[in-house]
Simulated scan of single mutants.
Amino acid sequence: MDIKDWYIEVTGKDSVHAVAEKSGVPYTTFYKQVRKTITPTSAVRIARAYGRPPTEPLVVMGLLTQEDVDALASSGSLSRAGDAELVRELARRLGVDDGGEV
């Protein structure tokens, strides 16, 4: 899949004008991009406007790998997890999870 395939999949039958308006990309700028290549900035704005992860088009474009995205997600999750959640996950990974309260 390339960025044009991704664009078609995400926006469906929406017109270029509708996509530009929904994503907040100026129409004339976006019209030129659709004819040549969509920029990463526009692709991220489209993803957000259509409820898709903003990293998705960046992976499609080869600017990020799925491993990059996974690493970002796991590091963010750990920093937001509470102590009890961390202890339960550690116990599960060590195979000592007895299902009890922490």
Score class of each variant (00 low, 15 high):
residue 3 I to F: 03
residue 71 A to P: 04
residue 33 Q to R: 00
residue 91 A to W: 05
residue 44 V to L: 02
residue 96 V to M: 00
residue 5 D to P: 03
residue 10 V to F: 02
residue 88 R to C: 07
residue 10 V to M: 08
residue 99 G to Q: 06
residue 45 R to H: 07
residue 77 S to D: 09
residue 58 L to A: 02
residue 97 D to I: 00
residue 85 E to T: 08
residue 46 I to H: 02
residue 10 V to S: 07
residue 100 G to Q: 11
residue 76 G to M: 12
residue 13 K to V: 15
residue 63 L to D: 01
residue 28 T to S: 08
residue 102 V to L: 08
residue 34 V to D: 05
residue 28 T to A: 12
residue 102 V to Y: 14
residue 56 E to M: 13
residue 9 E to H: 03
residue 70 D to N: 12
residue 9 E to I: 08
residue 92 R to F: 12
residue 66 Q to D: 06
residue 82 G to T: 14
residue 26 P to F: 10
residue 19 V to H: 01
residue 11 T to M: 12
residue 54 P to L: 06
residue 87 V to F: 15
residue 83 D to S: 13
residue 88 R to E: 13
residue 100 G to N: 12
residue 86 L to S: 11
residue 101 E to I: 13
residue 83 D to N: 07
residue 94 L to R: 15
residue 78 L to K: 14
residue 64 L to K: 04
residue 102 V to K: 04
residue 99 G to P: 03
residue 28 T to H: 14
residue 85 E to F: 00
residue 48 R to G: 00
residue 43 A to L: 11
residue 74 S to M: 12
residue 62 G to E: 00
residue 92 R to H: 12
residue 8 I to N: 01
residue 61 M to Q: 03
residue 76 G to L: 15
residue 11 T to I: 11
residue 29 T to H: 06
residue 76 G to K: 02
residue 33 Q to N: 04
residue 90 L to W: 13
residue 13 K to E: 15
residue 51 G to Q: 05
residue 81 A to T: 13
residue 60 V to E: 07
residue 2 D to G: 10
residue 87 V to D: 01
residue 94 L to E: 14
